[in-house]
Design a protein around this nucleic acid. Structure first.
Lengths: 207, 207, 207, 207
DNA sequence: TCATAAGCGAGACGGTACGTCGTGTCTTACG
DNA sequence: CGTAAGACACGACGTACCGTCTCGCTTATGA
């Protein structure tokens, strides 16, 4: 028996974007949203398509997400959940970074254009966008800091090089490459970036 | 000594995107397009507004640029022309990079959202988008390589570190920061990026 | 005695052109269409004007009538409904015909140009045009045959002269005159036509 | 010294619509106009099509005829010239009328929709339209009156039945039938009209 | 003989209507 | 009551046509 009050109180644990964790119907709609985004890209994305494919009503969508932009944001935030896992330990910093770079590159390859769309539509709902960006990157940040902490533990790098400001060099570069050339970033480029930029920076002599 | 930047500026301009250099009327329309983009942002941008403000006809616009996306691209390519100038020589690589970072940051701050829009709408006209991206970044590439060549001439760095693949670390990071947080990149972040990432990479010991 | 007119009026009205009888919103739009047609004429008629005046949306109009031509046709068909009434019995055929001629002439005077426009645009939607013409003239046919049947009942004419083919001599002539000279047909011309053409034909000696 | 005055005076022989008789170039353009009208009908008619097909320039067209409506009118007036011939004498009024009806019916079949278009667009250039209508029907009037005069000469009808007002019953009915059903008027209908309407009217007993 | 002008082909241009489509609001009917 | 279905206002998009205009090119005359 459903006691929607207790269900409600359960839902108010959600963190950032989704507030309450999504109901089954919401989850379904968000999944369909992600599907459509993947298939036809952000700029051809249509709320009506989501509605049609989910056999839903526009009112049902707009009751929860007041605009197309917020629907897309919410769908993205929904997707991010559960991606916080650290990549497996490969035994050395370089291996960990290469592995992480691959993960990020694959993800960016799949979702780059959608993210660009969200960023471009920025002013429609600035606060939401900010939340999304935070969500997006807090996952990455944890992964990266995790890898770096492992390297510190191994004695490969000094703890001082872990910065709170520019930790995002790796995802930034990968995302940028994806957006610029719309092809996947070649593995060789990832390797070069890690060997020629990341590692020199992380193992630099203290100034 | 190569001054390929100046050589570049001597070429018949507008070769890539605009085909022939724009007629006066075209230039006018592109200028108005840029105006509108700045004022109301990419997602609220309207061809009709351009038409109204330029006292033009829709046919005049669509005769040249077959869609809104291409109009915006062309306007951007038009804007880029003449931005090839090298930043002034500050005497040392670090100073040059800081100066260049400022330039890039200011530009990205002004046009970031528009660029994101173009990237998001990518598939509407892929070839045009590619041309635009090439134009956008060939200008930057010239500037960066110019600065690095100056550093090589000064003996600050080895010519070997100049890569044709990952030269774009600096603009990538700046653009990404702009798009992520929509505020201007703080000078301190630029400094940190240069000191902690760029310079270690450029002055790294040969592997 | 056949009262096919009243039988007709009992049928579910709006069968032919409008399909189901129009919804309130449809009726409103058709009324506004007729208004605009009267005010500015067929060739300056604009769907946007209808939309603006009815505080409607273009989509609302085009959802029901796929083109301007069909909107105008439907508006006309809508107008025709309820015009099936017989003119009052004046006691003799000549009087009935004069009365009917006046009615037709006034109607043609008001709508002549619009009808010409519809006819000219014929090929845009031939089947619809045909329906419209049928509707337009089935009403007239009822009126004329009604008048003639009264005359037969009075013994003024023979039933044999009532033709199914060329019953439309009267409306044809009136409409033509209206279209040709754009002024109303003078009463004297109507009288002459009835006395010198209609009545000799109706009372002719059997060949 | 320009002799445009004398040139002008030369050209001022034309009668009604065309003013001066058309130059070769004008005649060519009018012919092409008629061609296009026949092929695609009045409502899809386009000045640009005439221009393209005649390898002419829009300026050339608009220098002579200030609007599409006037171009079409002029083309029609041009076509009418030389159609004033009487139909051959068949020996009796009925034969003459049948022959004439055929001629009119064929002409109306070819040009009905165009004429309707001109009539519908009436208010664009009322005076021109009036001229056209006069031209159109003065030719017919001559033909009909010619046939009637022949019948008077034969003693078939009385001269008194020739009316100046409602002479146009025959073309009116034919034109109307053409416009209404867009198919050619069947010969049987023409015969019935002549036998059952025209002849009773023309041979009626004096009231 | 050449230049000066007029006619012309070509087609860009401003304006405006068309018909399509997407967003976000709202109503109706069903379960 | 929530929901599916979908009508609706608003407004942008991209197309097409009209009538005006400017450009060169050609031709035909007058100095």
């Amino acid at each position: 028996m459903l006691t929607s009050a207790s269900a409600d109180s359960k839902r108010h644990r959600g963190r950032s974007l989704l507030g309450p964790s999504p109901t089954p119907r919401e989850a379904e709609l968000l999944s369909v949203t992600l599907e459509v985004l993947h298939e036809i890209g952000y700029d051809k994305f249509t709320v009506d398509q989501v509605v049609a494919r989910a056999h839903a009503s526009k009112a049902t969508v707009y009751r929860r997400w007041p605009s197309k932009a917020e629907l897309v944001c919410a769908a993205f935030a929904y997707r991010i959940q559960g991606e916080h896992g650290l990549p497996p330990d490969t035994g050395c910093l370089r291996g960990d970074l290469l592995r992480l770079a691959e993960i990020i590159a694959r993800d960016a390859d799949e979702n780059g254009r959608t993210i660009a769309g969200i960023l471009a539509a920025g002013d429609r709902s600035p606060e939401l966008r900010e939340l999304l960006v935070n969500d997006l990157h807090s996952a990455r940040k944890e992964q990266i800091h995790g890898v770096l902490r492992r390297a510190v533990a191994r004695g490969e790098i000094s703890a001082e090089v872990i910065s709170d400001d520019i930790w995002d060099v790796l995802p930034a570069y990968i995302m940028f490459r994806i957006l610029q050339h719309k092809r996947p970033v070649p593995a060789e480029t990832l390797r070069a970036f890690i060997d020629e930029v990341m590692l020199p920076s992380l193992t630099r002599l203290p100034t």
